[in-house]
Amino acid sequence: MQPRAVDAAGVAHEMGSANTRIVSLVPSITELLFALGLDRQIVGRTGFCVHPHNQVRQVRKVGGTKSVNVDAIRALRPTHLIVNIDENERDTVEQLRAFVPHIVVTHPQTPQDNLSLYALLGAIFDREQEARRLSEALEIRLHEAAAQAFPKQNVLYLIWREPWMTVARDTYIAAMLRLVNWQTLPDVQGGATGEARYPVLDFDHAPWLAGVDRILLSSEPYRFTQAHCDALKRDPRLAGKRIELIDGELVSWYGVRAVEGIGYLMQRAAAS
């Protein structure tokens, strides 16, 4: 019997067969599955799974990450479903569990967690060599970041407007930013304190705002533009703060994108 790999829910999975059929409900992991060379086994993905562009167009859409079309997935007869604790609804996953034999739960919370993510999927889908290559590339990036002394910056990372929303410090995004010594404000731990992992903020009632050095407007999930950036620069409450756009995919997408994302953040921090 093949050794079993344990996912984020503590479930052990044996290696799939040559007839494996995968549906991914996680955009960044869909990209990772293609990077592992699983093109022929991927039969379903969400409408937000847009990378790699050319390959995903050949894969049937099954709704969104939270608005999943259960019947569409059923029709695809998947053997494996890839989900994420933050991105997919538990109730939906439980519905799918009734007819999908293997549900693989993921939950990377730091850049380093990608190493175990690569290993998990490599073991389940018989792509261990490809997974090792990705791990080696990521470890190089992590060592490069750790070897540099980046000046500390307190940052407000905005992911939404109306209402304004940011990230707690126990999110993957905040962990990525810490690699270049960018510390997120407010200083809250969503999971540990019961507060939201993606808290709503009011510029008029945020005493910690005075300590923010730069404000980063993410390109996703809300697509901030230069117009939003310029509007905030005119806001007297934010006078003297550096306000700029940032590529949300490179900061928030785990999987294969983490390798490029760390390099991107290192360049941004070095140019500060």
Rank of each mutant, 00 (worst) to 15 (best):
V6L: 11
D7E: 12
A9K: 11
V11M: 04
V11G: 01
M15V: 05
A18E: 13
A18W: 00
A18G: 05
A18I: 02
N19H: 14
I22K: 06
V23L: 08
P27D: 12
E31Y: 12
D39R: 14
D39N: 14
Q41I: 04
I42Q: 07
G44S: 10
R45A: 05
G47D: 10
Q55A: 15
R57F: 04
K66Q: 14
S67K: 13
S67F: 10
N69D: 15
D71C: 01
D71F: 07
A72H: 07
A72E: 13
R90K: 14
R97K: 13
F99V: 05
F99E: 03
V100E: 05
H107M: 12
D113M: 00
N114F: 00
L115K: 00
L117K: 03
L117F: 01
A119P: 00
G122H: 04
G122T: 04
A123V: 02
R127N: 04
E130D: 12
A131F: 04
R132F: 06
R132N: 05
R132A: 13
R133K: 09
E136R: 11
E136Y: 02
E136V: 11
A137L: 02
L138P: 03
I140L: 11
R141K: 15
H143T: 13
H143W: 08
H143G: 10
A146Y: 12
A147I: 09
A147N: 12
F150R: 09
Q153E: 13
L158D: 08
R161K: 15
R161D: 14
R161N: 13
E162H: 14
E162K: 12
P163A: 14
W164I: 04
M165P: 08
T166F: 09
V167H: 06
A168C: 13
D170F: 06
L179V: 06
W182G: 02
L185W: 03
P186V: 07
D187W: 08
T193E: 09
E195C: 05
E195K: 14
Y198R: 02
Y198L: 06
D202A: 12
F203G: 04
D204E: 13
A206K: 04
P207R: 11
P207K: 07
A210G: 08
V212L: 03
D213H: 07
D213I: 03
R214F: 00
L216R: 01
E220W: 06
Y222S: 06
T225C: 01
T225M: 02
T225N: 02
Q226V: 09
H228W: 05
D230M: 00
L232Q: 00
R234V: 00
L238Q: 07
A239D: 08
G240Y: 00
I246P: 07
G248C: 09
G248R: 08
G248Y: 09
V251H: 01
S252C: 14
S252N: 15
S252H: 07
W253K: 09
I262W: 12
I262R: 08
Y264T: 11
Y264Q: 07
M266C: 10
R268K: 15
R268T: 14
A271Q: 15
S272H: 10
